[in-house]
């Protein structure tokens, strides 16, 4: 082999390695910069206190609480529906049927729809159509549900995270061996009994991974809740489904772009970003670990 060729090859391999390490480097820089910026402000009190002085001081407890509430309501909606869809796709649908393929296409489409579109849909469907409809029918037109609140925001977020759950659960269901299903059926179990007693328990880890990934996604997304329920500042925590709520991601956005004094609140912003980043990071890491174990088991 000629010397020139060897050098070209070396350069090319070096370039690919450089690209890979560049990405890793940016990830590390991002993590480090956010942590350095936020670590001095970060404390137990910061997590548990309310904002003070027009959000110039104090903690972020309401934002954490609101985010937690959001993902809980979201999961209650997304996880069962996602799991059931995954069960349909693996257990009931014929792989090649038009219906199954259409559902798969819809799921993938749902995963690529920009999150802001979900926000618009939440506004147009949940708030203006369902919410106003409920007000008209049950409250004689009195405005209660026809405005942004945590329920509509959570349901909007549930639509966004539905594909995440479906994909994870489907992958897990496929690792339940056919032999187990056969054993169950041969014992005189019906299809549903087999699914309920063998398939679902066998895919518990997948359902958990799906839930974790969905929670992580839901905790970090801001665009869908911009106008479906997130609030700037609230003096009290949400107590009803028709209340608005504060949210970590939204808090970061507002503080960084619309705060009265961006520079003065910079430490709070960094600390809030650090909290959100750590939260999603830990959730994702957990999911990655569970999933890689699952994949190894499948082999």
């Amino acid at each position: 082999m000629s010397r020139k060729k060897a050098i070209t090859g070396g350069l090319f391999v070096g370039l690919t390695a450089f690209s890979a390490f560049l990405i890793i480097a940016v990830i590390i820089i991002l993590l480090v910069v956010i942590i350095i910026g936020g670590k001095d402000t970060f404390s137990w009190e910061f997590l548990t206190a309310f904002p003070e002085d027009g959000m110039m001081k104090g903690g972020i407890f309401p934002a954490i609480y609101g985010t937690a509430l959001l993902v809980v309501i979201m999961s209650v909606a997304a996880v069962p529906f996602g799991t059931i869809t995954a069960i349909y796709l693996t257990e009931y649908a014929h792989e090649k049927s038009i219906l199954a393929q259409t559902i798969r296409f819809a799921v993938r489409t749902l995963a690529t729809v920009p999150s802001i579109i979900f926000g618009l849909f939440g506004l147009g469907f949940f708030i203006k159509f369902v919410g106003s409809g409920m007000d008209d029918v049950f409250l004689g037109g009195q405005l209660k549900w026809g405005q942004p609140n945590i329920l509509w925001a959570s349901l909007t977020m549930a639509l966004l995270t539905l594909p995440v759950v479906i994909v994870s659960v489907e992958e897990a269901i496929r690792t339940v061996p056919r032999e187990m299903r056969e054993a169950s059926l041969a014992l005189g179990a019906t299809k549903w009994e087999t699914i309920r007693r063998i398939v679902i328990p066998g895919s518990r880890s997948g359902i958990m991974t799906g839930t974790i990934l969905a929670v992580s996604r839901g905790a970090g997304e801001v665009a869908p809740i911009l106008f479906t329920g997130a609030a700037y500042y609230l003096a009290t925590l949400p107590t009803s489904l028709s209340d608005q709520f504060m949210n970590l991601g939204y808090h970061i956005y507002i503080m960084a772009t619309q705060s009265a004094n961006v520079d003065q609140t910079l430490p709070i912003q960094f600390a809030t970003t650090m909290v959100l980043l750590m939260l999603t990071f830990i959730l994702n890491l957990t999911a990655v670990i569970i999933r890689s174990r699952l994949r190894r088991k499948a082999k």
């Binding site: 991002l30 910069v33 956010i34 996604r217 970090g220 665009a223 959100l276 999603t280």
Partner: peptide
């Protein structure tokens, strides 16, 4: 991929 876009935006 799991980093929230608001975090990337902030960065």
């Amino acid at each position: 991929a799991g980093f929230p876009s608001v975090v990337i935006g902030f960065f």
